[in-house]
C-alpha cells in the first residue's frame, strides 16, 4: 500500500515542556506535521531529542503543553482521559522496544488484552487473537508465557496484540531495538507486509538506519525540533 492524500494526523505548533527539578525542559518545540493514511514513516534523532515524546503525543498517551494534534479529525489535546483511552483502544496500536507483554498471561491472552476495552465476547476475542497470532507465525505458541518465548517471538506477539483490533495507525518505538540483526529483519518484514496488506499507517521511532531506510518518509528530531531528512 502507498501513501494516500487522506490526512490521518494534523499537527500544528505542538509544544511539550516538562518541569524537571525546577527547570523547564522543552521536549517538543513548535512542531508542525501532517501524516497521511498509509504513510510509513521513520523518526530518527539523538537520545533525548523528543522522538518518544512525539510518539506519545501521536498515541494520545500524553497531552501537549500547547498546539494542536488531531487524529482523523478528532482533537486529542481536548479529550478527557477516558476519551483518549477509547481512541487508543480503537485507532492506535503500540509496539514497544521492550515488548511490554504481561508476564503472567500467555501469548494468546496477551493479544486478547487489546480486545478487552472493545467489549468483544470472549469467544470472538479468542478467535481473533488466534488469527492475529497466526498472521505473525506464532499460532503454535499461543499457550506459552512470554518467559518461554524468544525476544523475536515476544515482539511478534506484541505486533499481534497491536494489530488484532485493526487500528488506523501502528506506532512503534524502537521495535527492533532489543533484537539481533536476523530477527530485526524478520520483524521488519512482518511489519512491512502488514503495512502493505492492511492499509496501515506505520510510524517508527528508531536509531537503526537499516530500519529507517525501509520507511517511505524519514523525519529527524533533535532538541524538540522536527525536520525532514
Amino acid at each position: 500500500m502507498s501513501q494516500t492524500t487522506e490526512v490521518l494526523y494534523e499537527i500544528k505548533g505542538l509544544t511539550k515542556s516538562y518541569n524537571q527539578k525546577g527547570k523547564n525542559v522543552v521536549a517538543l518545540a513548535d512542531v508542525d506535521l501532517t501524516i497521511h493514511v498509509g504513510d510509513l514513516i521513520s523518526i530518527q534523532g539523538p537520545t533525548g531529542g523528543g522522538k518518544s515524546t512525539l510518539l506519545q503525543m501521536l498515541g494520545g498517551l500524553d497531552k501537549p503543553t500547547s498546539g494542536s494534534i488531531s487524529l482523523s479529525g478528532d482533537n486529542l489535546e481536548n479529550m478527557s482521559e477516558n476519551e483518549l483511552a477509547k481512541t487508543r483502544s480503537h485507532k492506535v496500536g503500540f509496539i514497544f522496544q521492550t515488548f511490554n507483554l504481561i508476564p503472567t498471561l500467555t501469548a494468546l491472552e496477551n493479544v486478547e488484552t487489546a480486545l478487552v476495552p472493545l467489549g468483544i465476547s470472549s469467544t470472538d476475542r479468542r478467535t481473533r487473537s488466534l488469527a492475529a497470532l497466526e498472521s505473525v507465525g506464532l499460532a503454535d505458541r499461543a499457550s506459552h508465557l512470554p518467559s518461554e518465548l524468544s525476544g523475536g517471538q515476544q515482539q511478534r506477539v506484541a505486533i499481534a496484540r497491536a494489530l488484532v483490533k485493526n487500528p488506523q495507525v501502528l506506532l512503534a518505538d524502537e521495535p527492533t531495538g532489543n533484537l539481533d540483526e536476523e530477527t530485526r529483519d524478520q520483524i521488519m518484514e512482518i511489519l512491512e507486509e502488514l503495512w502493505r496488506n492492511k492499509g496501515l499507517t506505520l510510524i517508527m521511532v528508531t536509531h537503526d538506519s537499516n530500519v529507517a531506510k525501509r520507511a517511505k518518509r524519514n523525519l529527524n528530531i533533535a532538541n524538540g525540533r522536527l525536520s525532514a531528512r
Binding site: L61, A85, K86, R88, F94, N100, T113, P117, R161, A162
Partner: peptide, 8 residues
C-alpha cells in the same frame, strides 16, 4: 502498557 492499549 494496558493504558496504552486502551484500558481505562
Amino acid at each position: 502498557t494496558l493504558k496504552a492499549i486502551g484500558w481505562r
